[in-house]
Structures are given as C-alpha cells and as structure tokens.
Amino acid sequence: MRIRIDLAYDGTDFSGWATQPGLRTVQEMLEGALATALRVPRVRVVVAGRTDAGVHARGQVAHCDVAPEVLAASAGRSRETALEALLRRVNGIVAPDLRVRRLSEAPDGFDARFSAIWRRYVYRVADDAALVDPLHRHHVLAWQRPLDIEEMNAAAKPLIGLQDFAAFCRRREGATTVRTLLELSWERDTAGRAVAKVVADAFCHNMVRSLVGCLLAVGDGRRPPAWALEVMTSRVRNPALTVAHAHGLTLEEVGYPADQELARQAQLSRTMRELP
C-alpha cells in the first residue's frame, strides 16, 4: 500500500531534503525513522519538492510504499489503527525540528511528486529595524533598506505564466527550466513584514530564491521594475542577480487534483515541458 506523509520541519539545522553522505538531511531522518518503526531494513520516500539547506516546510508532502502485512505487524497489539501507531512511533524517533503531521492511505494513482499540480512557497522579509524579531531570525530575512511593495509587484507581473526560467535556475543536466508560474505577489502581513507568495506547477533549483532576490533589488530601488523581465528574457544567469538567503523561505502547501485525476496528472508531469 502507498502511504501519504504530511510533514513539517524547521530547515535551520538540516542540509536540505535530499540524503547526502555524512550530512543531516530531512530525507535521511524520515526514512530512518520509518524503517525503525516498521522494523524493515530500509524505506524509500518520494517527496513533492526537494528543499534546499536552510529552507523550511509547513506543508510538505511525501509518500512511501509498505506491504500491508508489514504495517499491520509494526502496530503489534496497539488499540490504535496501524497508521495511528506508526505516526506515534515515527514522531517519537525523529528530532523535534521534524514532525510528521499525518499518515494516510493514499488513493490510487497518487504520487507525492508527480501528481502535484502546484506548490506554494512564502518568503518573509523584515525591512524595518522595528520589525526585526530575534525570535524569528531563522525564518524571516532582515533587510536593511525599505521595500516598495508596488514596485515589486509591477516587476513580478510580467513573469507570471508559462515561461522559461533558465535565468532564475541553477541548471541540471537533462532537466527543463520551463515552468508555469501561477502567482508571484508581495503584500504586508499584520506585523508589517513584506511577504512574497510564490505559486507554480513546479520549481527548478534555486528558482524561488532567485526570483525573490531579483525583486528585492527592485523593491529597495537598486533596479527598475523592468529589470526583472530583462533578466528572464535573457535566459542566462545574470551575475548581478543575487539568490536570497534560504532561511526566509517556507514551503507552505502542495496542491493535488481530485482523486480520479491523480494518475493522469502524474503521467502529464513526467512529460518534458517546452515553450509553444
């Protein structure tokens, strides 16, 4: 059976999601805890979106495949359901900066990565000394220049849609940089911080932080709003473009279609995207 895993983590002390030899990663910790709780040598987990070192997640989604008899045996004589018992045991094994919020039997066709239709990230910036809270230093970027939200939104608007984001991505061999950016907008939260909402069907490596870095340069007056579109249409990395620090970024939510569309979406997502 396939198990859907809803989880959250503080990325401060993790070297990103993906397992790396000798480094503390979310995948390594989660897979190890699942294997221990299920009493099996190894569990392989597939995630909706691989986060970089220092990036946080509040609404990350993953899946793993487990034989039903293995799951049942792991629960022992517990009065809980097998998934409830597994959830309790896994959260008793992982460190406090990782928390599995829910385990559920996934519907037919579900793939945490390929069935997703969008991912929503939020980037938080304190651009006034009065807004900088030491208690939030690992989750909010402190910026020493005031930001103009209207200018940032004007710069962001032309980037929305099906585009080649090669200028905002770290290229990977054989991977496309074509993405559909569904939303890129800035607003002030109730505390007065500048908050970017970034939603796309998928993201390539460093894309969100590069977009944020570009718009911060516009917001503090170092670049005009038209610069963002100039960067994108060049389709090459601009040395003047700064990738924003990881700690201001949080994966908030992953969206999926109706159950009957999961398998079809997974198939579509595996198709290499190109511009028309």
Results as ranks from 00 to 15, higher is better:
17 W>S: 11
24 R>V: 12
27 Q>C: 10
29 M>P: 10
29 M>W: 15
32 G>Y: 15
33 A>E: 02
41 P>Q: 11
43 V>P: 04
44 R>A: 15
48 A>M: 01
51 T>S: 13
52 D>F: 08
56 H>D: 10
57 A>Y: 06
63 H>D: 05
68 P>R: 01
68 P>N: 00
70 V>W: 03
74 S>Y: 01
81 T>M: 06
84 E>A: 05
87 L>N: 09
95 A>P: 14
97 D>L: 10
99 R>K: 14
101 R>Y: 15
102 R>K: 15
105 E>A: 01
108 D>W: 15
113 R>V: 10
121 Y>E: 09
127 D>R: 11
130 A>V: 08
131 L>S: 03
139 H>F: 05
146 P>A: 04
150 E>S: 09
152 M>W: 07
167 A>E: 07
169 C>M: 07
177 T>M: 13
177 T>V: 08
177 T>Y: 13
191 A>F: 04
196 A>N: 09
197 K>T: 07
201 D>E: 14
211 L>C: 09
211 L>Y: 10
214 C>Y: 05
216 L>H: 11
225 P>Q: 03
226 A>G: 11
233 T>S: 09
235 R>W: 04
237 R>T: 06
250 T>Q: 06
252 E>S: 09
254 V>A: 04
254 V>Y: 02
254 V>H: 00
255 G>A: 12
275 L>Y: 12
